[in-house]
């Protein structure tokens, strides 16, 4: 794919999101480019995580929440009531702030999403698990103890395992919610390298409060403030020559 042909993976149109009465995301319109990394930045409470959790309808878990507007993905509005949530979440995966290993073996953790998809064949499972564990740079560390409990891994390993688990069902999009904020610098670097390698084959959205991280890894950056999208552009432009003064002030650390 050539660099200058822009293909849209997700189109956000006039999206607002309410926690009860409170409007947490206000009328956001945004295109997410295919197979690129888009970073969502902004001060805490700006709605970036709330926006991220709209893409896999995670808010539906809690009562009293409401969406308006549209999010178009694969020619469908995923905010539609009749959407198959299971399918949606298989296509759009998510990695969380804290590692979330399931209380089962390393193998079963990664196999979980595959089994949900109906893959039962042992050899196929094994091959695919080996593949994603290698892709997540975890294979060498766990190859000899795949049946050990995932709870015994270190925090950084657990997070890479969660990434592998998310990648296994081959999603089109992966959402990252501050995936490295609970990790040490070395583990952080590993996750960032992995994201870098995945770019080009998977669309990624990352919420981060770490400006250097956004600058290091993302292709595009969106800056949010008080629930509104202030500005979105190519990352190098956002960090060197933003159009809005507020963006510049945030990026240079004048508030946040």
């Amino acid at each position: 794919m050539s660099e200058n042909i822009v293909e849209k993976e997700i189109e956000v149109k006039n999206l607002s999101f309410y926690y009860g009465e409170k409007e947490a995301v206000k009328n956001v319109t945004l295109n997410i480019e295919k197979n690129k990394i888009t970073a969502l930045i902004g001060p805490s409470g700006c709605g970036k995580t709330t926006l991220l959790r709209c893409f896999n309808r995670m808010h539906d878990l809690y009562k009293g929440n409401k969406y308006t507007g549209e999010i178009i993905f694969k020619n469908m509005n995923i905010l539609d009531k009749n959407i198959d949530m299971t399918k949606l979440r298989t296509d759009i995966g998510m990695v969380f702030q804290k590692p979330t290993p399931f209380p089962m073996s390393i193998f079963d953790n990664v196999a979980y999403g595959l089994r949900l998809k109906g893959i039962k064949n042992k050899t196929e499972l094994h091959n695919r698990i080996e593949h994603v564990l290698k892709k997540s740079a975890l294979w060498d560390e766990v190859a000899d103890r795949l049946s050990a409990s995932a709870m015994g891994l270190s925090g950084g390993q657990q997070q890479r395992l969660c990434l592998a688990r998310t990648l296994a069902p081959e999603p089109d999009v992966v959402l990252f919610d501050e995936p490295t904020s609970a990790l040490d610098p070395i583990s952080t670097k590993k996750i960032e390298e992995l994201m870098h390698e995945l770019r080009g084959s998977i669309t990624m959205l990352i919420v981060t409060h770490n400006m250097q991280q956004a600058a290091r890894i993302s292709d595009r950056t969106a800056f949010m403030y008080m629930g509104e999208l202030v500005e979105e552009d190519a990352t190098d432009i956002m960090f060197t020559n933003p159009k809005k003064q507020m963006t510049e002030e945030y990026i240079t650390g004048k508030f946040g």
């Binding site: 896999n56 995670m58 878990l61 949530m85 299971t86 399918k87 949606l88 979440r89 298989t90 995966g93 998510m94 969380f96 702030q97 804290k98 979330t100 399931f102 209380p103 089962m104 979980y112 999403g113 949900l116 998809k117 969660c162 688990r165 998310t166 069902p169 959402l175």
Partner: peptide
């Protein structure tokens, strides 16, 4: 059991009854 664990299972496309059966109950066994 932390809510994030349930969210992580849901985010994989797990139906809610399976989240309860496989993840939540198992963690709290």
């Amino acid at each position: 059991i932390p809510w994030q664990l349930r969210e992580a299972a849901l985010a994989l496309g797990t139906p809610f009854y399976k989240v309860i059966k496989d993840i939540v109950i198992k963690s709290a066994l």
